[in-house]
Design a binder for these strands. Structure first.
Length: 530
RNA sequence: GGCCUCAUAGUUCAAUGGAUAGAACAGGAGACUUCUAAGCUCUUGAUCCAGGUUCGAUUCCUGGUGAGGCCA
C-alpha cells in the first residue's frame, strides 16, 4: 500500500518530525498525487530529495509546494498494479484482546444506551480480529445486587406471572411505589437478598428464573442485531471469589480501614471502596475479581471495556488498583461513549420517563425499510441503525433523532449498501469481457477511486489504535461517494474497448470487495440486490 | 467544591497540528430515451469568548462562559 509505505520511510528517516499525508484537493492536478505536509518547513526540500532517491520505482516526481509541503506524484503504472491489494495489515499475531461490551442488567429491558456499547464493541472486536488478534467477545451480565432482593420480595408479595422482562419491570415498579407508603418493604427486600446470598434454595431458584428469562430475551435481540459473544459471565459468578480477592488486596498492603469500611487509597483519585461497613461488597470488588480472572485465564495483550462515559471514575479506580497489584503487562482501556440524548438535550426517554427500548427502535427502523423492500428490510434497517451510531465519534453524546435515524438517504448505512448493490448489478450484467488493461484507467473518477482504495488498511488499523470506528465509516462513505461519481460519469458495460471494460470491472470488484469487507467489520450486512 | 465528556452551518454530525473546515438533513436550482433516482450535478450557510505555544491551531496549553455526567 502506497500510503503505508510512504509513512514507513518517512517515519524512519524523520523520527522526530510528524508528517501527514493528504489527499490532494482536486483531481484536476492532472496526476495521481499524494501530498505530504512536514512540520519543519526547512525540511521540505530534503524530504523531496530523499523520496526521489528512495522511491523512484513508485514516485514519478516530487516537488516542494510551499512552506512545509511536498507534492508527491505517484507513478500511474505502480498505482494501477496495486489497487486491488489494499489489505489490512496483520499486526496482532499471537496476541489476545478481550472486548467487553453490551453488558445488560438482567430484569431490565435493553434500551437505546445498550445499542452503543453493543454496536461499538462488536465492530471493535471485528477490527481486532481482522488485524490478526485473537479476540474474546465478553458479555459481562449485571445479575447481582440488592435490587434482586426487592424483585424476589415483590414476586412473593404480589405473586404474579413472570414470563418476560416486562413483567419483572412491572413487579419492581409496583414494589417501589408501595415502598413509599410501607417502609417495611425496604427491609423485606434486603432480607430476601441476604437469603439469596446465603444460598436459600427458593430465592436461588427465583433468581435463576429471572436470569434465564432475561438472557433468552437478550439472545433474541442479539440475533436480530447480528452480534454474538464468546463468553457470558455474570457478576454473580465472582461472588465466591471475593473473600480471596479481598485477602489478596490486604496482603498486598494496599487497603486501609476507614469508618469500618475497607478502602484503597489512590493517588489523585477518590479512594476505591471494596467492602462496606456492613460487610457488603461492591461493584468495584467484583470487577477486580473479574479483571484478575480475565488476565490469569487469557493473558491478554489488551483488555477493552466498552462502557458509557458515566463510569469513567469507576474504571480509573479499577485500573489504578490493577497497577498497584502488578497484574502483569495487560493494557486496560475504558472505551467510553456518550449518552443517547433526546431531541430536548435530556437523556432519551419515553413520555412516561422510561428509557426507549432497543427492540422498539429496531422494529421501527426495519418497518421503515420494509416500505421500500420487505425482502431486505432487516439488513437495511439494522444497517441504518448501526451505521448511524458508528459514523459518529463515540465520545460525544449523540442526539437520537427519529427522522435522521429512519432516513435511508444521505450519509447512511443504506447509501453504502445501495452503492454496493448497483455495482453488483453492473457486474451481473457485464457479460463477456477480455483481458484487462489497467493503463486505460485514466478518468479522474477512476483515479480518485484507486487512490482512495489505498487508505483502507490504514483506516482499519487507526480504528484499533483510537478505539473508534468513525474513521472507517468515513472511509467507506467516501469510497461509496467516489464509486457513485464513477458510476454516473462512465458507462461501463457499453464500452467498445474490451480491455478498458475489463479493467473497469476489476476496479468495481475491488471497490465491492472493500465495501463488503469494511461494512462487515462494522457489523453491517450487504445484500447483493436492494 | 473536585474530576470526566463536550461546545463547529438553521439542525444532526466530520476533520492523526496542515493547503480553500467536509458531509447529511432542511432551503434554492438542475440534468437524464442509457448499467437500480435509497442515486448524480450546482447553490445558500459554521469553528463559544480571551490569551498562549507554533512557519501553521477546530485540534495542544491557561483562563472564562455554557451543556451533560460522576464523586463528595
Amino acid at each position: 500500500m502506497f500510503s503505508a509505505w510512504l509513512r514507513d520511510i518517512l517515519a524512519h528517516r524523520y523520527p522526530g518530525h510528524p508528517f501527514d499525508i493528504l489527499v490532494p484537493p482536486d483531481p484536476a492536478m492532472g496526476d495521481f498525487s499524494t501530498n505530504i505536509a512536514m512540520v519543519a518547513h526547512q525540511d521540505a526540500r530534503a524530504v523531496c530529495d530523499m523520496l526521489m532517491a528512495d522511491g523512484s520505482e513508485r514516485i514519478a516526481r516530487c516537488e516542494v509546494a510551499g512552506p512545509g509541503f511536498v507534492n508527491v506524484f505517484l507513478r500511474d503504472d505502480w498505482l494501477r498494479s496495486v489497487f486491488a491489494h489494499a489489505d489490512i495489515p496483520q499486526e496482532g499475531h499471537g496476541h489476545t484482546v478481550i472486548v467487553e461490551y453490551s453488558s445488560p442488567n438482567i430484569a431490565k429491558p435493553m434500551h437505546v444506551g445498550h445499542l452503543r456499547s453493543t454496536v461499538i464493541g462488536d465492530a471493535l472486536a471485528n477490527v481486532y480480529r481482522a488485524l490478526g488478534y485473537d479476540v474474546v467477545r465478553w458479555n459481562y451480565i449485571g445479575d447481582w445486587g440488592t435490587q434482586f432482593g426487592r424483585l424476589i420480595a415483590a414476586f412473593k408479595k404480589y405473586g404474579e406471572k413472570v414470563e418476560t422482562v416486562q413483567d419483572m419491570v412491572a413487579l419492581y415498579v409496583r414494589f417501589h411505589e408501595d415502598m413509599k407508603t410501607d417502609p417495611s418493604l425496604e427491609a423485606a427486600g434486603r432480607e430476601e437478598f441476604q437469603k439469596l446470598e446465603a444460598g436459600d434454595q427458593e430465592n436461588r431458584a427465583l433468581w435463576e428464573r429471572f436470569r434465564t428469562t432475561s438472557l433468552a430475551e437478550y439472545a433474541a435481540t442479539y440475533e436480530k442485531l447480528g452480534v454474538a459473544f464468546d463468553v457470558y459471565r455474570g457478576e454473580s459468578e465472582y461472588e465466591g471469589e471475593l473473600p480471596r480477592v479481598i485477602a489478596k488486596l490486604m496482603d498486598a498492603g494496599v487497603t486501609r480501614e476507614s469508618e469500618g469500611a475497607l478502602i484503597i487509597p489512590l493517588e489523585g483519585l477518590p479512594p476505591g471502596m471494596v467492602r462496606k461497613s456492613d460487610g457488603a461488597t461492591l461493584y468495584l470488588t467484583r470487577d477486580l475479581a473479574s479483571l484478575e480472572d480475565r488476565i490469569t485465564r487469557y493473558h491478554p495483550a489488551k483488555l477493552l471495556y466498552v462502557v458509557a462515559n458515566q463510569q469513567a471514575l469507576h474504571f480509573e479506580q479499577l485500573f489504578a488498583v490493577k497497577d498497584k497489584l502488578r497484574l502483569g503487562g495487560t493494557e486496560t482501556v475504558h472505551v467510553k461513549f456518550g449518552l443517547v440524548l433526546g431531541p430536548d438535550g435530556k437523556k432519551f426517554s419515553t413520555r412516561e420517563g422510561n428509557a426507549v427500548s432497543l427492540a422498539e427502535v429496531m422494529d421501527e427502523v426495519v418497518k421503515r425499510a420494509a416500505q421500500r423492500n420487505p425482502e431486505t428490510a432487516e439488513a437495511i434497517g439494522i444497517g441504518a441503525l448501526k451505521y448511524n451510531d458508528l459514523k459518529q465519534h463515540p465520545h460525544t453524546d449523540i442526539v437520537f433523532d427519529w427522522d435522521a435515524m429512519l432516513d435511508l438517504r444521505g450519509n447512511s448505512g443504506p447509501y453504502l449498501q445501495y452503492t454496493y448493490a448497483r455495482l453488483a448489478s453492473i457486474v451481473a450484467k457485464a457479460g463477456e469481457h477480455g483481458n484487462a488493461d489497467r493503463s486505460t484507467l485514466v478518468h479522474p473518477t477512476e483515479r480518485a477511486l484507486m487512490r482512495h482504495l489505498l487508505d483502507y488498511g490504514w483506516s482499519v488499523s487507526q480504528c484499533a489504535k483510537l478505539h473508534a470506528l468513525n474513521g472507517l465509516a468515513l472511509h467507506l462513505y467516501q469510497l461509496a461517494e467516489k464509486a457513485n461519481g464513477f458510476y454516473e460519469a462512465v458507462r461501463i458495460n457499453d464500452d467498445d474497448e474490451a480491455a478498458r471494460k475489463a479493467a473497469r470491472l476489476e476496479l468495481i470488484s475491488a471497490v465491492m470487495h472493500q465495501l463488503k469487507e469494511g461494512l462487515g467489520l462494522l457489523g453491517i450486512r450487504v445484500p447483493e440486490r436492494i
